[in-house]
Design a binder for these strands. Structure first.
Lengths: 340, 340
DNA sequence: ATACGGCATGTAAAGGTTTACACAACACAG
DNA sequence: CTGTGTTGTGTAAACCTTTACATGCCGTAT
C-alpha cells in the first residue's frame, strides 16, 4: 500500500483529520498544538513514513541548513581532522556540509559561490586564507554571506577567525629547544606573505629575545612550507661557515625535508642536530627520528569554527571575533640535549 | 539601485518584456527560443545579476543535483584523494557533494539518510562497505536511491562497485617479492570478513602457487589492518622456529607496524627482511626504509565512481556493474634481494 | 450580560521554478 | 482559399512547505 510518491504534509493532515498548518506546527513548534491532536498527527506521520521535503522548506524559509566549506585541498593531511570536527558539529546541530575543493583556482572559487547565491548554503567556512574570488564582484557588502576563517586568517577583512595561537605555540616550541641547551637555533620557513608563518617567526624571535639570545639572521631561512622547500633550505644552510645546533621549522612538512636532508648527509639525529616541527601531522610519529612538534587541536578547531559560524547564522550576537586555541608540545625523538 | 532581495525570474522577464516561461527556456534550452529574444533575456540577466534559485528548481524538478558521500572517516589518509576525485568529477558536471562522516555509528548513518528522503541528495557514494543502516527499514526496494560502492564492495547486495583490482594487485606484489628471490613470504593481515583483505590474500596465494612455492600456513597471520595490529603480528611471528625472509602486508598501515617491530628488534631493513605494503598512503615514502608498495589510483577511483553514479542518475543504462582499476608497483627501499 | 483575552485551529498566500497545454502567426501544400 | 505543420511564446498548474491573519470557542473580569 506504500505510495509510489513519498508522502506529503497533506497526506498526513488528511489522515490525522486536521489542516496542514496544524501538522506543520505539531512538527516544528510542538508547544503550540494540543496534546491530543499532536498524538494523532505523530501517528499519521509514522503511518505514512512522512519526511518533510527539505527543498520546499528551504524555499519557503530562505535558508538551507547547509554550510559551504572552501578548502584549497581537502586531501591535505592538515585539513583532515578539521573537516571531521566541522562535520561533527554541523551534524550535531542539524546542518549539512557541502565541500568545495578549490585547488586555489579562482574560477572554481567563483563557481562555488553559486551555492550561496542560489540559496543552497547559508554560510561559508574559509580554509583558503583569502576571500573567495569573485565575491566582491557578486554584489554590495550587504550580500556578503556569514563567513568564518579557519587556520589561515584572511588579511584586510573583518572575518572572524578560529585557529591555533601560532605566536604562542612557536614561543613554546622555541623555549623547549632553549631548555635543551640550544642557543644557535635556526628558523626554517620565513615568509613575507603567509600570515601563519609570520606569526610563528615572531614567536621564535620573542622566545629567543626573552632568553637573552641574540638572533643570527643567517639562521633565518625562507621556505614555502613544503617538504621540498625544507630540504632545500637545509642544504643552503651548509654553505655557511657556522651551523646551528637546532632547527625550528615552520611546519612538520618542512621539518621532514630538513630531516631528510640531514640524514642524507649522514648525520645522526637527534645526536648531531635537533629538529622541531609544528602541526603534528599524521606521519610525524612515523618519521625516523619521530618528530617533536606542536600539536594542533584540529578536531577542536573544526568544532569551534563551525560553532561560531552557526551562532552567527542563528543571530546570536557574536562578540568574539577571534578564537585562539592552544597547541600542545609533543615530545618525541627529534630533539635532544645539546651535545657539542 | 541593487535590490535588497535577489532578482527572480520574474524581474528578468519584466525587463526583457517576455514571460517567465520564455526566460526559463532561454536559460535551459536555448534552442527553443528565438535568437533576438534570447539576447534581450541575457541582457536582462546580466543587468539584474539573476541566479536561479536552486531550492525552487529542485522542488519543482524533484532533484537536487547533489550527491551524498558516506564514509566511516573522512580524515582517513586512504580516502583523501578519493574525495578529491569525487569532488572534481561532480563539480565538473554541475553537482555538489555533501559529506557524511559516519564513524561507523548506525545512528549517524540512519540520520544521513534524511538527505535522501528529504530530496536533498539524489544518490549515494558508499565508502563504508555496507548498506547504510536504516535503509531497508526506510521503505520498499523501489525507494532505494542510486548508489555506488567505492573501495570496499558491499556484500550480498547488487551495488555497482568501483575500486582497485585487489586480487591482481596482490599477485603483482607477491610476484615482485618472488622475483627478488624470496620464497618464505609471510602474509600479514588475514581476515575472514573484510572482502578487500580476502581478495589480497587470494592474490598472494595464487602468485605463490603459480611460482610452484608451497605456502607455509604458519606464515599467514591475522591482523585487522591497523599499524598496531601489524606490529603485533610481527611479534607473534618471532615465537616461531622458522622465519620468513619477506613480509607481504595487507596494507601500508600494517606494513608500517611490521617495520616498526622489526626495527625495534634491531634488524637492518631491507637487508635482513623485505617488507611490502599495499595502498601507497601518503607517508609510505617517509618511513625508513621507504615502503615498496602497490599504488592505488585514488584520484581515478574517485572520478570513475562519481562518473558511474551520475550516469546512473541521468538514466544512462549502466552495463558495467564493476569497474576495477589497476594498481601500480612502486619500488622503494623496503624490498631487496634475498640475502640469506 | 457584555467585553475581552487566550488558546487551538483553519484559510490562504507566498516562496521561485519548470513545463504541459494552449494559442497565434506564419509558411506551404493541396 | 482551406488545411496542416512548424515555430515561438504565453498561461497556469504543480512542486511542498511555513506563517500571517482570521475564526471560533471558552473562561473570566467587569
Amino acid at each position: 500500500m506504500s505510495a509510489t510518491k513519498p508522502a506529503t504534509i497533506e497526506d498526513v493532515a488528511l489522515i490525522a483529520g486536521v489542516s496542514i498548518a496544524t501538522v506543520s506546527r505539531a512538527l516544528n513548534e510542538p508547544g503550540k498544538v494540543a496534546d491530543s491532536t499532536r498524538r494523532k498527527i505523530l501517528d499519521a506521520v509514522a503511518q505514512t513514513g512522512y519526511t518533510t521535503n527539505a527543498m520546499a522548506r528551504s524555499l519557503r524559509m530562505r535558508r538551507a541548513n547547509m554550510i559551504l566549506i572552501l578548502a584549497p585541498d581537502v586531501g591535505d593531511p592538515n585539513f583532515s581532522n578539521i573537516l571531521v570536527g566541522l562535520e561533527t558539529e554541523a551534524s550535531k546541530r542539524g546542518y549539512g556540509i557541502l565541500i568545495g575543493n578549490t585547488q586555489n583556482d579562482p574560477e572554481r572559487e567563483t563557481n562555488y559561490l553559486r551555492f550561496i547565491s542560489s540559496n543552497q548554503a547559508d554560510g561559508i567556512i574559509l580554509l583558503t586564507g583569502h576571500l573567495p574570488y569573485g565575491l566582491e564582484a557578486a554584489g554590495p557588502v550587504t550580500r556578503m554571506p556569514p563567513m568564518v576563517a579557519v587556520n589561515e586568517p584572511v588579511p584586510y577583512a573583518a572575518i572572524p577567525f578560529v585557529g591555533v595561537d601560532n605566536f604562542e605555540g612557536a614561543r613554546v616550541a622555541t623555549d623547549h629547544l632553549i631548555s635543551q641547551g640550544h642557543t644557535r637555533i635556526a628558523f626554517i620557513g620565513k615568509s613575507t606573505n603567509r600570515a601563519v608563518a609570520m606569526l610563528r617567526e615572531r614567536g621564535y624571535r620573542t622566545a629567543l629575545a626573552s632568553a637573552g639570545v641574540a638572533i643570527d639572521e643567517r639562521f633565518v631561512l625562507e621556505a614555502d612550507g613544503t617538504t621540498e622547500s625544507g630540504r632545500g633550505a637545509a642544504e643552503r644552510m651548509f654553505v655557511r661557515d657556522q651551523l646551528p645546533t637546532a632547527f625550528f621549522c615552520v611546519n612538520d612538512a618542512t621539518a621532514l625535508g630538513v630531516i631528510i636532508a640531514l640524514s642524507a648527509r649522514g648525520y645522526d639525529l637527534p645526536h648531531d642536530f635537533s629538529v622541531m616541527g609544528f602541526d603534528d601531522i599524521s606521519y610525524a610519529s612515523f618519521v625516523t627520528p619521530s618528530l617533536t612538534t606542536m600539536k594542533q587541536p584540529r578536531l577542536q578547531i573544526g568544532e569551534a569554527s563551525m560553532d561560531l559560524l552557526l551562532a552567527m547564522l542563528e543571530g546570536e550576537d557574536v562578540q568574539k571575533r577571534e578564537i585562539l586555541l592552544r597547541s600542545e608540545l609533543i615530545l618525541r625523538n627529534s630533539v635532544a640535549l645539546r651535545r657539542d
